[in-house]
Design a protein around this nucleic acid. Structure first.
Lengths: 129, 129
DNA sequence: CGGCTATCTGAATGGTTGTTCAAGTATACA
DNA sequence: TGTATACTTGAACAACCATTCAGATAGCCG
């Protein structure tokens, strides 16, 4: 780890500093590098996909509905073209946020656990600083 | 609610359909419109801000660290310029994902409950479809 | 088969965004 | 007061993205 300026900060903050204190802190910080999970990419795609208004609303509707909804029902609920809805649902499915089931000419979608937990996390932390 | 094609679907799916069944289903769908919270905008900005690799990693480090971390510690951990780190932290603060405390010439950041819950939701739903 | 319906896919495009560079605060210290 | 350090802010530019339009696929029914 590059530690030019960081060491200055640590020496300053750890006041009566011995080399060991600084080294210990640097060790702590190095350990933090491991706190980013291997599935970072999957996490980012889930967040990114949910962060679009259309897809967010589709996810909300699917999470709120009792069971599955089909594309034409969903298209009624969001205010974009059918093609945009299809693109959006495809992105959601690709990120593991919804399931897709084919039944004759209809295609049914439903929210996954991952979607429900993410939306739940947002709902649980409203109006905090 | 516009219901040209939707009604066709409903009639088809509700098999021996009476007008009441269709109307009831349309009523159900209308009720779903209310399932999008007023804070949609805040939710979207939180998700959008977290969906960038740099900001995601900063959030992870802050959530994993025992207490606060200062900018120069964080800059060591992510592989971008100090300016980019500052921009990223500013965005995180704006979305309510981190807190900011000034102490002399140092600036300390920490993860909020919202960040911890969102990351927790991701961690809890690994490897499911 | 042939027409109809539901949904998907690809290309094009206007708008958004993350990074860096350069300059600006603000605090510490001599 | 002057210099150094820590961090922020603004502008600029390349890269990315959501939508739409047009055309494709696939199941249903006569």
């Amino acid at each position: 780890m590059e530690t030019t300026r960081l060491e200055g900060h640590l020496r300053d903050r750890l006041a009566d500093c011995c080399e060991e204190d600084v080294d210990a802190r640097i060790e702590e910080l190095s350990a933090l590098s491991g706190s980013v999970p291997d599935e970072e990419r999957g996490d980012l795609s889930a967040l990114s996909v949910l962060s679009d208004g259309t897809r967010y609303r589709l996810a909300r509707y699917l999470a709120a509905a009792e069971g599955e909804l089909c594309v034409c029902e969903l298209t009624e609920l969001v205010a974009v073209s059918e093609s945009a809805t299809s693109h959006a649902l495809s992105d959601l499915a690709g990120a593991g946020l919804v399931t897709r089931r084919k039944d004759g000419q209809w295609r049914y979608y439903d929210a996954t656990e991952r979607t429900e937990r993410l939306l739940g996390a947002l709902d649980a932390t409203r109006g905090e600083r």
